[in-house]
Nucleic acid binder design. Structure first.
Lengths: 221, 221
DNA sequence: ACCTGAACACCGTTCAAGT
DNA sequence: ACCTGAACACCGTTCAAGT
């Protein structure tokens, strides 16, 4: 709605949807899709060891390729990480829009998206850390930026629907989306880092998020 | 109030308050305080290059010592980073308690703390990233954990004062502190990562934080 | 008790050379 | 056009040896 799909998005989305080709079935990548194999391996490595244990050489090893090969497809380590983060944002976007589609009540749509946001984050902590914790230069990577914008647009759309129903004050929806996203991101990130539990807060982040959203947006009790 | 000072805290706090001794003035650390010199160098390095460019060998170099020397004082790189993060939490705590002391109105105290929180975070992005972004095992480092708890207690105390004044619902203050901290942390962290501006939100995070806190806590408009 | 020197097993990145 | 091999300048960490 706010950011139309670009040609690159379509590529990325196709990339995400194409079925996985087991890497062992090819004896050579000369005619295969090494770029894809590398992002796949990167995703697996992030899932296994977290963004901290992510190594370009190990990714190359898993793809069955020399340490120098990735440089034909990514200018450096960060760009490969950015590709992984991009796929994460696409998954998050799909999760959010699916959550919004689950109810006809616009209020319940925002709340459901809030729950879905923290649920996805805490069940995919490694992706989430790559997406937000790795000081990726989003300005440096248009595909990553667009994928992030699409996820944000889900939130924005839900807010606009509430405004249209007079359940939220009219005006620039981003003024509402900013604090909303901050709340969700903060909860997700503090939960993943176990900071909340260290401080004696053990509540389910999903119910915590819903309660807080109710107060923040609709003045609920 | 919730977590009394331990012996270690006192050490850390003294460490933070002691005046800096220029490292060049000693020809040998055999009788000096290498541990202190290392944390000083670490702080400087974090400030210059961010947590990503933080290197144990470079820290040792700056302290004028061999690459192996730090291992007499820190079991590994993470523990030195944790020492830096600990000093960050002490600074944050001092900032927050100072902010709370600026007003007699308890409502204004929480709002002022909120503003102070995001202000400190965005003016010390490198510290903030070390404190929250570097997957430091807080359970692994009691001094870090305690320093973090002390900062959190500032928030908790302010909330308790509002409860006592019947401006917030009675009950476990942590149920209110959780979402509050999440909101502030989310705003700080998205601002530092420039995610908010990428999404078209350019509002001053301090005024954004105050407005959102008003709504979240006091049902303000 | 505290530090150095040298070593080990890794990194990210570059570049000539191969096919 | 795409990949390899070898090299470079780094890391974190360990450990015998020095003072």
């Amino acid at each position: 709605m706010f950011t139309p799909l670009t040609y690159n998005d379509v590529n990325i989305i196709n990339m995400a949807r194409r079925e996985r080709i087991p890497t062992g079935q090819r004896d050579s990548y000369h005619h295969g899709d090494l770029k894809r194999a590398l992002t796949d391996a990167a995703l697996g490595l992030v899932k296994e060891k977290g963004p901290k244990g992510f190594t370009l050489r190990e990714v190359a090893r898993r793809a069955g390729v020399s340490a120098a090969a990735p440089y034909r497809h990514f200018s450096d380590k960060t760009q490969l990480l950015a590709a992984a983060a991009t796929l994460g944002f696409i998954q998050l976007h799909e999760t959010l829009s699916a959550a919004a589609a689950e109810s006809a009540d616009v209020t319940e749509q925002v709340l459901g998206m809030g729950r879905a946001y923290v649920r996805w984050a805490v069940t995919h902590p490694d992706y989430y850390q790559v997406m937000f914790g790795s000081e990726l230069d989003k300005g440096d990577n248009p595909e990553l930026l667009t994928a992030g914008l699409r996820a944000f647009d889900d939130l924005l759309d839900a807010i606009v629907r509430c405004q249209a129903a007079n359940l939220l004050p009219a005006g620039d929806p981003r003024e509402i989306a900013g604090p909303t996203w901050s709340l969700l991101h903060g909860m997700a990130s503090l939960t993943i880092g176990t900071d909340l539990s260290h401080v004696g807060i053990s509540e389910d982040p999903q119910v915590m998020a819903e309660r807080a959203l109710r107060r923040l947006l609709f003045g609920g009790t």
